[in-house]
Write a protein that binds this DNA or RNA. Sequence first.
RNA 1: GCUCAAGUGGCGGAAUUGGUAGACGCGCUGGAUUCAAAAUCCAGUUCUUUCGGGAGUGUGGGUUCGAUUCCCACCUUGAGUACCA
Length: 994
Amino acid sequence: MQYNFNEIEAKWQKYWSENQTFKAENQSDKPKYYVLDMFPYPSGAGLHVGHPLGYIASDIYARFKRHKGFNVLHPQGYDSFGLPAEQYAIQTGQHPAVTTEENIKTYRRQLDQIGFSFDWSREVRTSDPNYYKWTQWIFIQLFESWYNNDTNKAEAIETLISKFASEGNAHVNAVCDEDVAVFSAETWNNFSSKKQQEILLQYRLTYLAETEVNWCPALGTVLANDEIVNGVSERGGHPVIRKKMTQWSMRISAYAERLLQGLDTIDWTDSLKESQRNWIGKSIGASVSFSVNNHDEIIEVFTTRPDTIFGVSFMTLAPEHELVSQITTEEQKAEVEAYIEKTAKRSERDRMADVKTISGVFTGAYAEHPFSKEPIPIWIGDYVLAGYGTGAVMSVPCGDQRDYAFAKHFNIPIPNIFEGVDISEEAFSDKDKTVIANSDFLNGLPYKKAMKRAIFELEKIGQGEGKTNYRLRDAVFSRQRYWGEPFPVYYVNGMPQMIDKAHLPIRLPDVEKYLPTETGEPPLGRADVWAWDVKQCSVVSNELIDNETVFPLELNTMPGWAGSSWYFFRYMDAHNDLDFASEDALKYWENVDLYIGGSEHATGHLLYARFWVKFMKDRGFVGVEEPFKKLINQGMILGTSAFVNQLNYVFRYKNEADLIEDTPTASIYFKHVYISNSLVNDNSKVEELLFELINKDSEYKVLKDYIDSGKFEQKPELFFYDKHVDVSFVNSSDELNIESFKNWREEFNNVEFITEEDGTFKVKREVEKMSKSKYNVVNPDSICEDYGADSLRLYEMFLGPLEQYKPWNTAGITGVHGFLKKLWKLYVDDNGIKVTNSEPSKDSLKTLHKTIKKVEEDIENFSFNTSVSTFMIAVNELTAEKCTSREILEPLVILMSPYAPHISEELWHQLGHEESISTVAFPKFDERHLVESSKNYPISFNGKMRFTLELPMDMSKDDIEKAVMAHEKTQAQLEGRTPKKVIVVPGKIVNIVG
RNA sequence: GCUCAAGUGGCGGAAUUGGUAGACGCGCUGGAUUCAAAAUCCAGUUCUUUCGGGAGUGUGGGUUCGAUUCCCACCUUGAGUACCA
């Protein structure tokens, strides 16, 4: 019987699906284990071989845990809201729901053929109204909550309202907007309802605010900072400008400290935790208020070095700082305005690229030093960022290199306040070695003490206090898109109102076009039926808006991370209509034990999900503080792109007089000539071939004309332009199939090739991200067809460590495929199964138990690549031993089943079992089988002598000493010296000392 | 600049409480089988050599009887982040 993988795989995939083999129950006697993949966005291009890497890893782990007796939840779903479907809809007019549905079908088919053990009965889709109903519900809960700093958790907004009604807001310690006015209980109660709502909005965990956003005119939407790369949009590369808009925001800053602390409780990689820590950006210091001379204004700054307060010799404000216009003197006005205008023109990019240039302007105003009362000149400079801290700094040139450079540049004095430190060349910022001098009450104090004292004194005079600052800022939650969750919000007198839970979901309305409206409103502005009738409690036509019972609905939609911030809870109870998940299900599954996905979500999804979970915990909706206990980042599988070298000749003009518009060169660009990669370095040969071509073909006469004109240097310079070629036209020796390439597209029909002498044409190779546009995509479908899903699974694991980035190379798959054939032959021959009940040999028992031990360790450590090698060795050894013993071969096939489930399941049934292999217990490792009879002990003697001595394995320490001593005695006799003393060191080594 | 990760044959990569470096696979070489090819099987494959051996895990030091593994400095590559006061 042959190893017919296609037949076997189809058979068992059908079996698993029909028998619901991997359906997880919400209660069980077994311990629970939750293995989750980051769910995919179903793109139109389908899966390539890079996508399943993480899924294969998590599937191996999930299957392993089932063998180990766990009740495993291993679900999958789709993050199906997103920009690509919308872009496609804009171009084609197709409803995103339709294309999304099609893409999901492709994904499902491709996932199924790889044989994952997903429980598809729990599938979720973020764009499904039954799912986003609960996304909307969570949004409402955020709206109905505020963050109480006293209890350090989120509370229902009603508790805040009753506090306001009974005592005002003076003693309320909440995370809120900075500009909240103080009011008494009486004033509160006399406020109009609208005024009350306005104030409450300043406290809610999601709130409307006028925010400066990154507006991308081409996409008609707002982008998050992490969606902008180098000043242009990540998708499409369109320019991005700053614009003010009223947007929903999430008060994630309330959770900054808990998000930071929580990192210590979870098992994530250090690098990932580090990037979250950096993103949160905690710094401890003080805020200090400086009064401005001759003005009422106060400038507040944040500093991490209050101990250097006596070193302040100037202040710097960001050019965008709101006080700049008020404090600037008449004389300086023109200069300051010119500077502000100049910096506003510079793009973020320019400002970043040009860190070294120092620029700034004096405002003419002076602030007063809180202690010395000396006047301090106030400058503006673009090295101070409006977005961080208060947008103003107290500049201490002796202690901060940027302040130092600024002071040097503008000849501002640099007072030294450090004991025994030379600051003539650069600033001194080593906190540990700091001793303060020339600083009144801080003299002689080291950094930490000086800092405490400074804060104490500042508080005493009411001009400052200790403060912790976070870089993490509130997250904008509105998107001007169509294909996202609609907000369950309507507006009465401009104030947002939440729609009651009973009427959710608020479904996406139909629109004619998916573009923003002509007036710049989001696409939902095009909807005709998009108003809320508070009497009927339903969405009605816009025409009925009457300011009494029918009101306009929110036009924005939620961002991509809304649906992905809580989906792991929905899998626990995916079909619940009454709740996002039942209490029992939440209590049983708790949180994700193992989460596998890419590291690109380090500061996006992974931070937002943690934020939402903490909020849901505070409000009692869930019982866990962190969503993902353990997290593994799988690396990416890269593609090996192929390029043809397109010729490009550049001619340099001889005489300046001939230059056209100062361009020193003229170039000819040979669209139709490609040159084999191994020839590109041989210029003389290229020229020879090319000139041959010129004489032959009139199309290249222009080159001849150039040369004959005499205006140019004799020798043109040669450049090559790389052009992507579909990798399917290239064989493993980098040779291009010229015919296929010519037929690929019309423009290539008549191209010329400069080939090797043997007529072959070599392409250039480069490793890049796998992508449709780079024509380097390898499709898993064809791999499954040619080698089978088990081969694909094993090979993806075998490629290298899970976390690493590695290029795909289809050639290598023959190795693991050959191994599977060997495995098959070990069990089955032409007459069917050949496994017998014969007694296993010692050697085969040893092979088996060695394999059990290694594979179990590997899975626990996620070193799946070395397991595959271990299997190969085991099968080679058992084949060599002609092992047919059931006692060996049955456990072996269980070991294999997480990695290669189809072949294992088939062999398991051939061995006469009825039940699925996935329910069988993992083989137990027995150390006794590994015990060797003897072992080579390395013996060393003061580094001068070294030999090995073969001794029985089960010898005691004393016996080893005796044996080595005996050996040493004979050795010493032979060499005519006195024997040395022998000491056995715990471990593998024996030392002999003099 | 800072933070993190990593440098081992032609290639992907094994090997750490410090103990025979290069497992396993690809590729390559030779052989068997075949009319031939594919497939399969067997042997070899770090470099070097006067066939005794010698060198060898990015570079230079150090600790150790012994270092791919630990320490110091440097170089290179990748990732993240960026004027964070």
